[in-house]
């Protein structure tokens, strides 16, 4: 089964391509990381998949269909910083948005919607905060609220933009556990992630991106020096050299 397929996907801003000829097929039931250096087009890729940015060429298929036909099976978690957290709303108000649909927008929120939203909050350990104003949440709590909103949609495919940025260790752990639960239920999770160090532990599958696609596949195949170097270029070189130096120093200290 294929969750997301892109074919020759190209996206440009002001005629400069930020994504070039992206071609991949992602499996279902896996936790998939999209990684690459800053400015490599990770967020743009998610937005292109969700139809939020115009594409210059190529297409995206989700579960072998157009997005419009499978919208209810796909959930999108935008970057936490993309909204104003001083907005006058409670945690519950935000999570209930996950129950909004094109065809129920003019209808009232039902008891069933509230139950589903409460259940989603429970899953991220935020139920006791449901009446809390969102301006009073920490970064990690904000991220959990966003994930709860997404869970309330009851989708099969979850697309998350940098959910691990600026969150505390407890939230990171909670999110990871949640991702594994979702995977065990046969859901597919696609996560944009910028930290190479943790990527290997977090994901089963990796898409390496740097404007064009460097590689995509099970993490064992992707995590080799050649491919990483290709994606990260000089930056990785510097990083690994620093790492080597640190090791040497640590060793020296112990020797004394």
């Amino acid at each position: 089964m294929i969750s997301i397929e892109t074919h020759n996907l190209t996206v440009s801003y002001n005629r400069r391509p930020v994504l070039w000829n992206i071609d991949f097929e992602l499996p279902t039931g896996k936790i998939i990381g999209i990684i690459g250096p800053n400015g490599s087009g990770k967020t743009t890729l998610l937005k292109a998949i969700m139809g939020l940015v115009p594409t210059s060429s190529g297409y995206v298929k989700i579960f072998n269909q157009d997005l419009e036909d499978v919208r209810s099976r796909v959930s999108y978690v935008p970057q936490r910083e993309s909204v104003d957290w001083d907005f006058p709303a409670s945690v519950m108000d935000i999570v209930l948005m996950g129950r909004y649909k094109k065809n129920n927008l003019f209808k009232r929120i039902t008891k069933a919607d509230r139950d589903i939203a409460a259940e989603a909050l429970e899953k991220v350990n935020m139920l006791e905060f449901s009446n809390r104003q969102i301006s009073q949440l920490s970064g990690g709590q904000q991220q959990r609220v966003f994930i709860a909103r997404s869970l309330a949609q009851g989708a099969d495919l979850y697309i998350m933009d940098e959910p691990f940025v600026g969150v505390d260790a407890a939230t990171e752990e909670a999110i990871l556990n949640l991702l594994h639960d979702m995977k065990n239920q046969g859901k597919t999770v696609v996560v944009v992630h910028h930290d190479l160090q943790t990527a290997k532990d977090f994901f089963d599958w990796i898409v390496l991106l740097n404007t064009r696609m460097v590689a995509a596949g099970p993490k064992e195949e992707i995590f080799n020096k050649k491919l990483l170097q290709e994606a990260y270029g000089g930056k990785l070189n510097v990083l690994s050299q620093v790492g080597d130096l640190m090791k040497e120093k640590a060793f020296n200290v112990r020797e004394k």
Partner: peptide
């Protein structure tokens, strides 16, 4: 008003 992108992703 709160999150235009999310609304768009829902097809609104």
């Amino acid at each position: 008003t709160f999150n235009e992108e999310f609304a768009k992703a829902l097809g609104i």
